[in-house]
Design a binder for these strands. Structure first.
Lengths: 113, 113
DNA sequence: TGACGGTAGCTCGTGTAACGTGGTAGTGGT
DNA sequence: ACCACTACCACGTTACACGAGCTACCGTCA
């Protein structure tokens, strides 16, 4: 069933990453594991790294290189003010779509047709 | 604000059309107006007609040509059994994403990290 | 008759996102 | 020296939303 999620995830995963970063700054590899943990098993590094690069290009995050004991240094991403605004906007848009979908589903035909 | 909805609507609008057709059979032009009425103002005919053709190709709808007094004949779309199944699947996927997003937002950190 | 406006349908091009595949590189353990 | 794990990145494919443009039917009004 979870194979056709792809299209519906567009735009959503970026919001997820923003929310994760709002909770706590993190880096690519960990974000992937976090997303997998909550159920987005299809989100691999090939999905997450482009998102992070997008966020960086849009200046929604601050990036710091941090050395790690295991493996190469990590690029730690932290949400900045613009990122927080983008996150708020994301949730607004989500709420909007969510409510409209509810309207269509429940069919509160207050008018015409 | 509603200008950046596009990406988040991917996959969702098809579900909306399915739901609209489940409520009552309809045709392209009317579906566009219906979507606009509930708030999806960006959904134009250039968006809806490809969706309808997709549904037809996937055999989720039955199509009938109906003459109209005003303008050219209408292509009336009606959901069939497979369409109803697709609709159910759509709501399942929506519920899935919706719940996971809720988890991430509310941060019910029941485990690790 | 001819011009207009609303109805109805369709096509094409563009932009963007998810995601698979594969590639590079640093680290520690054996 | 080898391997596994961590971390990052690049490329190509696929799919969708949407704007812009086109055709065509009908009734009304000039």
């Amino acid at each position: 069933m979870m194979d056709e999620l792809t299209e519906m995830l567009k735009g959503v995963l970026e919001g997820c990453v923003l929310q994760i970063l709002a909770h706590q700054e993190s880096y690519g590899y960990q974000i992937v594991k976090e997303l997998n943990r909550v159920g987005f098993t299809s989100a691999s590094d090939g999905t997450v790294y482009p998102i992070l690069m997008r966020l960086e290009k849009k200046n929604l995050v601050d990036v710091t290189k941090v050395r790690s004991e295991l493996g190469p240094p990590r690029k730690v991403y932290a949400l900045n003010a613009a990122g927080l605004r983008a996150l708020a906007s994301f949730w607004e848009r989500w709420e909007f779509i969510s409510s409209r979908l509810g309207m269509i589903k429940e069919r509160i035909d207050q008018n015409d047709r």
